[in-house]
């Protein structure tokens, strides 16, 4: 938890340096913010690993089929990656690229959720009969 505080402090320092670099060399400001993003996302992802293993074991105990947990994690990963790409493009001013990335992320999530919809439909139809 104390790492979290030092990370926030590092973020503030890096933001100041980025602003400093913005009027001299805008491309380095972008690279610096990308590095900052990599640092924080890496820290967050590394802390997610134990969380996911406990969620997986809880799901097995609760009897939920692991297929759905896998699809859920897949959608979570796709949304995380598209969020990273979109926020970087938006910050650099490429609004069109940012919207395309989020659109692609939505389509990928929809594609990976199709089996769940089919299973839901079958379940509801069997209930009706």
């Amino acid at each position: 938890m104390e790492q979290f505080g030092s990370l926030i402090a590092a973020a503030v320092v890096l933001t100041v340096i980025t602003l400093l670099l913005k009027n001299w060399k805008p491309e380095y400001a972008m690279l610096l913010s990308t590095g900052c993003m990599v640092l924080f996302t890496g820290w967050t992802v590394l802390r997610m690993i134990p969380i996911f293993s406990t969620v997986g074991s809880l799901a097995e105990n609760a009897g939920v089929e692991t297929v759905y947990i896998k699809i859920l994690l897949r959608c979570l990963g796709i949304s995380l990656l598209s969020e990273i790409g979109e926020s970087l493009c938006r910050e650099a001013g490429q609004l069109s690229a940012a919207s395309q990335i989020s659109l692609a992320g939505k389509v990928l999530i929809l594609e990976s959720c199709l089996p769940v919809y089919r299973r839901l439909l079958e379940l509801s139809l069997s209930l009706i009969e």
């Binding site: 990599v38 996302t41 890496g42 992802v45 590394l46 997610m48 690993i49 996911f52 896998k70 994690l73 897949r74 979570l76 990963g77 796709i78 995380l80 990656l81």
Partner: peptide, 11 residues
Amino acid sequence: LFGTIQQLFGL
């Protein structure tokens, strides 16, 4: 980072 994310989320 992307390798870790892919491996973690099974992408």
